[in-house]
Design a protein around this nucleic acid. Structure first.
Lengths: 358, 358
DNA sequence: TCTCGGACTGGAATGCTTTCCAGTCACGGC
DNA sequence: GCCGTGACTGGAAAGCATTCCAGTCCGAGA
C-alpha cells in the first residue's frame, strides 16, 4: 500500500515539461531583478515597495513604480507562494459540476473566495471516491491553503484517510465525516422533508415513496431519517429506494415502486437528476401528476416551475450554501475557530401535490 | 492607465499571509532534503529517482523509495513549477458556471485536462468584462500554462488587450476575437438555426422573433445572421431582440414582441436563461405553445423535454465542446500547431412547433 | 598494467520572491 | 563636535525542487 502510493509520484522522465527544451525560457517576462536594475535599486527595495512595506521613501517608491510600469512587470505568484507558504488558492472537490445545484454552490463559493483573495482549483470526481482521494492528494501537492469538499462517499476509508491527513483547513459541503470535527455548511433537509411529508399525510396519503440518492452521503440519510420520523408519528408508510444520484436510478426505482401491489400515492424525488428519471418513468407508466400520484422534488431546477403541473419543491438556496461554505473556510484561514452552519430548506407546495385518488 | 495598472500590484503589507507569523511553518511536511538525509544520498539523486531519470541504480532507487514511503513524502508542485516553468495548470474563464450549458462544457474540459495532467483554475466573471480582464491577469500571475476563455464581451478593448498580451496558449470557447488567430472550439449555430427557421417557414410562419443574447459574443451573432439569411431566402420576416443572456431580458423582449401589432407566430429563445423569461412572459400574456405561438429553444436544459409540450431545441453536445477545447489546448501545450474546430448543432423538432394559427 | 568509457553520484547553480539583519546617512540634542 | 536614533537601503539567506557539470569507481580492452 505504501509502495503503491509511491508509484503515483513517479513521473516519466521529461514528460512533465511540454516545451522541447525544459526550464523557463530566457525570453520570459520581466522579473523583479529587471525592475531593480532599471530603477537602480536593490531587489529588496522593489519587494518592499510592491508589498506596501512602511519603510519606503517617496523617491524610492516612485522610481520603482515607474520601472514597474515601464517594464509591465507582474509578480510571479508562484515564487511568492513558495516563499510565503500561502498559495492563496483553495481546492474545490465536487462530484459533478454539471449538476445545476452544485454549479450554483460552486459559483457562490468561488465568488466569495475571490473576494477574499483566493482562487479556486476545481476538480470533478464523477462520484468516484477513488478520484476524490486522488484529487485531495493532488490539491495537497499543489499546496492549496484550504479545501471545500463535497465528497462522493463519506464512508470510504480511503477518503477518510486522505482527508484526515490533511494539514489545511477544510469545509465540508453538506457532508459529515465520522470522528472528525470538520467545519461544514449543512442543509437542514429534515425541515423540508418534514413539512412536505406532513402535508402529504394531512392530505390523506398513506403510502409515500422516497426515490433517494446514495445513503453514503448526508443529504440522503437526513431525508430518509426525517421521512421515517414523520411516518412514525402519522399512519403513513414510507418506502425508500436508495442508490446513485442518477436519472437511471430514478427511473428504475420509480418503475419498481409504482408497479408494486400497493404502490405509493405520493413520491418524493431526492435530487434533480433523480427527478428526471422519475418523470420519465411516470410518463412511461402512463401515470399522471397529480392525478395518479403526487410528486415532490428536492432541489430546484430552472424549469421545474414551468412543468405542467409545476412540481412542488423542497428548496434551498444553493448560492448561499456556497457563500457560507467559503465564509467558513475564510474564517479558518484567518485563524478563527472552526465552526459549522446549518441553512434552511423550505417546502414550496404546488398543484403537483393533492389528496390521493379516493 | 499604466499607473493604474500598477495600483493593482500593491498589496497591503502583511495582508497576504493569513497565519499570524508568516513564512512556512517549520513543522511542515517532509521535503526532499529529509528524504535524501534518511536515504543517505544526495538531493539530486532523490530527484532523479522520482523523476524517472534513467541514470539510477536499482539500489539507489530502492533506498530512495523506501525513504519516501517511510516519510510519506509528497513533492511540492509549487517548487517544481517554479523550477521547470510549467505549472501544469490551466485557467478557465467563464461568465457563469451555474448555467448548465457552461457547467457541462467546463466539466468536459476539466476531465480531459486532468487526464492530460493539468488542473483547472476556475473563474466566474458574472458577464462583467472588467472581471474577465482581472481574471486573465490573475491567471497570468499564477503562471497557468494555458487558458480556456469564454469571454463576456469580444469587443471590449480591455479584454482584447489583456488577451493579446498573453504569452501562453489559449482556446476560445465559442468566441471570436478580431485580428487574433486564436484557437477556438466553435459551435455551428448557423446550421441549427437554419434547420429550425426553414422548418418554421415551411410550416407557413411568416413572422418569427428571435429573443437573442448579447450581440457582443459569437453565438448570438451567428444565430441572428443565420436567421436573417433564411428569411432573405423565404418570405418570412424576422425580428431580433438582442440583449443580455438573462431571464429578465427574455421576459421583456417577449412581452415587447408579442404585444406588437403584428406579433410573431414563432419565437426562438437564444439561450436557456432567456427561455425561462420567454416562458414566463408567455404565461403571463396568456399565450399557449404551440397554439398561439411556436417555440424553439437554443441549448438543452435538463427538463425541457418534460415541459408540456416539450420544447423543440437546437442542440449541441456541451461535454464534447469542453473536451474538444481541452484537446485543442493540450495540442498547443505539446507544441503542435494552433487549430480550431467547429462542432455541429442539430434541430430537434417537437410539438412546440406547428403551423401558425390560420 | 594502464587507459578509456560507461554507469552513477554528489555538489552547486538556478528559478523568483520575501524578509531578516546589518549597515549608511542625516539630524537633533547635549 | 559627538553620539544616539530613526529612516531607509542593500545584501544575503531561505523556500523546494531540477538539472548541469564534474567527479568517482569499476570493468573491459589494449
Amino acid at each position: 500500500m505504501a509502495r503503491s502510493r509511491v508509484r503515483v509520484l513517479l513521473r516519466d522522465h521529461a514528460s512533465m515539461t511540454p516545451s522541447p527544451s525544459s526550464l523557463r525560457t530566457p525570453t520570459s517576462r520581466p522579473v523583479m531583478k529587471q525592475v531593480a536594475d532599471r530603477a537602480g535599486v536593490a531587489l529588496s527595495s522593489v519587494s518592499r515597495v510592491l508589498s506596501g512595506h512602511p519603510d519606503v521613501s517617496a523617491v524610492m517608491r516612485n522610481r520603482v513604480l515607474d520601472a514597474v510600469a515601464a517594464l509591465g512587470y507582474e509578480p510571479d505568484r508562484l515564487a511568492q507562494s513558495l516563499r510565503t507558504g500561502a498559495t492563496m488558492s483553495v481546492g474545490v472537490v465536487v462530484g459533478d459540476i454539471s449538476n445545476p445545484l452544485m454549479a450554483q454552490i460552486v459559483l457562490g463559493a468561488e465568488m466569495r473566495l475571490r473576494d477574499g483573495g483566493y482562487s479556486s482549483l476545481l476538480t470533478n470526481s464523477g462520484s468516484d471516491p477513488r478520484l476524490d482521494v486522488e484529487h485531495v492528494r493532488l490539491l495537497q501537492q499543489r499546496r492549496v491553503d484550504g479545501m471545500l469538499l463535497s465528497l462522493s462517499d463519506e464512508e470510504d476509508p480511503g477518503v477518510a484517510d486522505a482527508v484526515g491527513r490533511l494539514d489545511v483547513p477544510i469545509v465540508l459541503l453538506d457532508r459529515q465525516l465520522a470522528g472528525q470535527g470538520s467545519a461544514a455548511a449543512l442543509s437542514d433537509h429534515a425541515a423540508g422533508i418534514q413539512a412536505a411529508a406532513q402535508e402529504l399525510a394531512d392530505l390523506g396519503h398513506r403510502r409515500v415513496g422516497l426515490v433517494n440518492g446514495s445513503p453514503r452521503v448526508r443529504p440522503s440519510r437526513e431525508r430518509a431519517t426525517a421521512l421515517r420520523k414523520v411516518c412514525r408519528s402519522t399512519d403513513m408508510q414510507c418506502r425508500v429506494r436508495a442508490a446513485a444520484y442518477t436519472a437511471e436510478h430514478g427511473y428504475q426505482a420509480t418503475i419498481d415502486l409504482m408497479r408494486a401491489e400497493d404502490a405509493p400515492t405520493a413520491l418524493i424525488a431526492g435530487g434533480n437528476q433523480i427527478l428526471v428519471g422519475v418523470l420519465r418513468a411516470l410518463r412511461e407508466l402512463g401515470l399522471t401528476v397529480p392525478g395518479d400520484v403526487s410528486l415532490v422534488a428536492c432541489d430546484d431546477v430552472p424549469l421545474a416551475s414551468y412543468l405542467d403541473p409545476p412540481i412542488a419543491t423542497i428548496r434551498r438556496e444553493p448560492g448561499q450554501i456556497g457563500r457560507v461554505a467559503a465564509e467558513l473556510l475564510l474564517e479558518q484561514l484567518r485563524g478563527e475557530p472552526v465552526r459549522s452552519q446549518t441553512l434552511p430548506t423550505t417546502f414550496a407546495k404546488t398543484e403537483s401535490v393533492r389528496p390521493p385518488r379516493a
